[in-house]
Design a protein around this nucleic acid. Structure first.
Lengths: 232, 232
DNA sequence: TCACTGTTGTTAGAAGTTCTAACACAAGTT
DNA sequence: AACTTGTGTTAGAACTTCTAACAACAGTGA
């Protein structure tokens, strides 16, 4: 037997350290995560934690990895729970799960989508986990009737991206819809969690839902006739 | 005469410090901005800079303020330069100026829209400057034909927001279009500058332009028939 | 010209941080 | 029982922000 007890103890220690790190993240932001302070709160001295994490960056890396996993699990669960519903309702389910995850732990959302460490390149497994969230979204989009559009550069890139991860059967139009849906949802969420709507007196939840409905119904006719394609 | 020479010297020193800080920001990220290191590169000792900035946060504050001003100046200039063009072309001009500013100095974009300092609340003047960018966008949207939609909560908030800064004559439908246009553009830019598209092999410029065109032409018909409002 | 005031710089130092090195001890294996 | 491995310790280097005390300077007024 190969150290099963020590192995478990090691995992528990790492988990506790990450738990405290998340608390610090919520309270003081990413800059407030201190290996020393975590150790102190665990009742050990600072250098002890270096047996578990190669350094601060390694710890942050783990937090990022965990967050991607957690986000993917959340939206996947939501999508699966809505498996019997209509595509619009499934998109709504995805969007609500996504927003819910983000706003209940904004610091974690910012850990994923906020300011990256310069020179940081996510490892392959983290990238794959991040794409799980994207796949969940693609999964609820209707695939039928997707015209094979002209071979644009963007389409080619989208197909290449999907193909590289075993989703080669998704038509480029669906991929584009998915990616754009994601960027739009993120656009609202990103501004919300970084507090940009606060001083504007606007409820981001309403804006978010308006965006979701516009995503579902299309852009014209939902709200107002103010179209940018007016005469001119 | 009240120290006009000293005053100028003081301004020059602050400007140089901020210039070096921006270099550090670009190279090492926000965490890499060090008062000590800036001072060293200016040929003075660390504490000398505390005559000019109350602390590191004060310096960062100035960087944020400058960035908002610079962004607003840029998009305003672009919008004014396109004053004779059609609304769609003016929206394109705004969007291109916005993206150009962001991608040529991603670290600065992240300084504005990335991870905020916890507990940080932007001072009023910074908020007003931030809204200048939003106003530039609203300025190129056509106002005619904006139906007075039902008095929704979101509309009321939008009108309140606009009214609080002397833009009470802009119809809520236009305000909503503007805010949503902004969140969409930001959605793409945010993911681009934080490097999310890198491992996907997708050119963010194409995605951005697709989003701009969809903003202008509306969502249906631009690309593919994959609509979320299918039967179901 | 001399003295005064305010600004800008210095060094010293406190209290943090990350992280390495060297050592002590306990736990698991042979 | 001896050996190896894992986990914790203290000491310390090299940083960081930031304050305090002091020195030197510029500009003003008598």
């Amino acid at each position: 037997m190969v150290n099963v007890r020590r192995e478990r103890y090691r995992e528990e220690t790492k988990t506790e350290a990450k738990r405290i790190a998340l608390e610090q993240l919520a309270e003081l932001g990413i800059a407030g995560i201190s290996v020393n302070a975590i150790a102190k709160r665990m009742g050990v001295t600072g250098p002890a934690l270096y047996r578990y994490f190669k350094g601060r960056d390694d710890l942050l890396n783990d937090l990022v990895r965990d967050a991607w996993h957690d986000l993917a699990d959340t939206v996947e669960a939501s999508v699966e729970a809505s498996s019997g519903a209509s595509p619009p309702d499934r998109v709504r389910a995805f969007a609500e799960a996504f927003r819910s995850w983000a706003v209940t732990q904004p610091h974690r959302y910012l850990l994923l989508f906020g300011t990256p460490l310069p020179g940081y390149h996510a490892p392959q497994d983290t990238i794959l986990t991040a794409h799980r969230t994207m796949s969940a979204l693609l999964g609820v989009l209707p695939h039928e009737g997707s015209a094979t559009t002209g071979p644009s550069t963007l389409d080619a890139q989208l197909v290449g991206w999907a193909g590289a991860r075993g989703e080669g059967d998704v038509p480029p139009a669906v991929l584009l819809t998915g990616v754009r849906a994601f960027t739009r949802l993120h656009g609202v969420l990103s501004l919300e969690v970084s507090g940009q709507f606060g001083p504007m007196g606007i409820d981001p939840a309403l804006l978010y839902r308006a965006e979701v409905e516009s995503l579902i119904l299309g852009d014209s006719g939902v709200r107002g006739s103010t179209r940018l394609s007016g005469p001119g």
